[in-house]
Amino acid sequence: MTNTLLEASELAIEIDGRQLVSSVNFSVGKGSAVGIVGETGSGKSLTCRAVAGSLSTIGGRISAGNLKLNGKDLTDPKAYAKLYGRIIGLVPQNSLSALNPLMRIGTHLIETIKILGTGGGIGTKDRAIDLLARVGLHKPEHVMKQYPHQLSGGMRQRVMIALAIAGRPELLIADEPTTALDVSVQKDIIELLGQLTREENMALILVSHDLGVVSAATENVAVMYSGMVVEYGPTKELLQNPRHPYTKALLAARPSLEHTGRLIGIPGTPATPDAWPTGCRFAPRCQFVQDSCLQNVPTLQSVGSSHQVACYRADEIEILDNAGEV
């Protein structure tokens, strides 16, 4: 692909010498949206930090593999100095702690625009108002004069998005941008992110524990489990035809308004990074496990045009499943 913006291959991350992420593979095309889904401890947030260049703040580092943005090596922490704001924009999880409580929203925006120098011909103030309108805030002139605590959580998160896109970045990274928000605004925020990436031709990495959230705004999704990507492919296809037993189980474990039958949980809990099994890391909880799964860690294999799965039995399970349904 020539229009690849970001590419991660066999990315491994360690903190204090403990390896927490071992093989992450995915790519983000220019202007496309990719979701990273996983549970607590899956390594999704670390992966996100690796891309954002903020691993060092928690004592972590990329220990192996490649991470390239526009062909530029990102494994070198110094590569980030000029990327923030202009190439990479970040939307944090908690907007309240990310905004200076003593500064008006307008001041936040105007300073950011000045630093990034992206007024684009119009005055910084007009550009700030523009941005606020862009993220769907009514009465942007009024919002400019308000302090962070005067806004609701949803409005603050919109302000964060406005700040993140102020430098017209090529890549927007959002790590669980809605977990701190009320349900009724969650969907709006996710849809706003999806809409912005389409209209501004920005790429998006959306990290979430919820497949539902990711499906609303992304074209591709990477499912992570115990520090590795176990399935990667087009969001729609992955939701309709999941191939990894973990993805299948994850979907079956979600209650939904349509299905009221008994939920099937995944037995057990994920292994801690110190106790990763030698073979497939999902094997201890997998209903399809057999001896071959316990030898080596499976790697991502193509099962469709752009659908990849890291499971030795992906094909057999497909047949078993189909047979079971008949």
Partner: peptide, 19 residues
């Protein structure tokens, strides 16, 4: 300020234990 507005979302630091 830019840093304050854009980075910390990902920076809830976990202090290291060994020292």
């Amino acid at each position: 300020m830019t840093a304050a507005a854009q980075v910390p979302g990902l920076a809830s630091a976990q202090p290291t234990t060994r020292p």
